[in-house]
């Protein structure tokens, strides 16, 4: 099913069979999209939202000189632009980082869910609030951490997000993004990102090679990035490796 990863492993919001069937029925189309394709531009009028089935996507803003700042990374199972349902336009661009498969959900179908299924509506709302919680963590990351801390925090967070959807074994995962993407996520230059990744490797915390992430010391990396996964609202029943991510 296309919605299998939506809210998977999140606390108190597992979809019931009827809810899942309704959400599956709300999908009008499934598309595959090439890597590095912009699918929504800021200000575009929108009548659909996008559920990411496979691949990685991002939300980003460009500065006056065209330098890109990623403001969110979306992983499989995320409703990338559900907030476009009430907003109808976005204030940022949305693009694929890797090749991606997405499900298109028309806003008129969401109208139907909103009118008839309050509990499913609450769960959809939960997913947008989860996005907001992640944004707060990104603000903390950029405002309070040095370069090594920012990268350590991002990699710890991504590991924790991919674990519930079965795309991390607790310490290793395919990220499919480049060192330059990491730079744009962490607000540093590519040269800085290169040095930081080398430092994390030399400190025995993490290896990033060919877009594959191998966290050698989950607790140590979390500690370096001051990462505490509470804001991800991950179910306590998830495998122990997810809980090892807590900073001490």
């Amino acid at each position: 099913m296309f919605t299998d990863r939506f809210l998977k492993g999140r606390r108190g919001v597992q979809l019931g069979a009827e809810e899942r069937a309704v959400l599956e029925g709300a999908i009008s189309e499934v598309r595959t999209i090439d890597a590095r394709a912009t699918i929504v531009s800021a200000g575009d009028p929108l009548s659909n939202s996008t559920l990411l089935i496979d691949g990685f996507m991002c939300r980003y803003l460009d500065d006056r000189e065209g330098m890109r700042q990623l403001v969110a990374v979306q992983v499989p199972g995320d409703f990338v632009d559900l907030h476009a349902y009430p907003l109808k336009t976005l204030d940022h661009d949305v693009a694929t980082l890797t090749a991606a498969t997405v499900a298109i959900v028309p806003h008129r179908a969401l109208d139907g869910i909103n009118a008839t299924m309050p509990e499913l509506t609450r769960k959809l709302w939960f997913s947008t609030l989860l996005d907001a919680a992640i944004h707060r963590a990104w603000l903390f990351r950029l405002g309070r951490l040095d370069a090594v801390g920012r990268v350590a925090h991002f990699l710890s967070e991504t590991n924790a997000r991919l674990l519930p959807v079965g795309l991390s074994d607790g310490s290793r995962f395919a990220l499919g993004i480049t060192q330059n993407d990491i730079a744009e996520i962490c607000g540093i230059t590519n040269v800085h990102a290169n040095r930081v990744l080398r430092q994390l490797r030399e400190e025995g915390l993490c290896v990033f090679r060919s877009s594959l992430v191998d966290i050698l010391d989950v607790r140590g990396l979390a500690r370096r990035g001051q990462f505490n996964p509470d804001y991800l609202y991950i179910d306590a029943d998830m495998p122990p490796s997810s809980n090892e991510s807590q900073a001490s």
Binding site: L142, G143, R144, L145, D146, A147, V148, G149, R150, C186, G187, I188, T189, V191, H192, N194, R195
Partner: peptide
């Protein structure tokens, strides 16, 4: 110094090339 540039790390919140 890295690749002909200067990297400044810290204090916290600072990461500049």
């Amino acid at each position: 110094a890295e690749a002909g540039l200067v990297l400044l790390d810290g204090p916290d919140g600072i990461a500049v090339t």
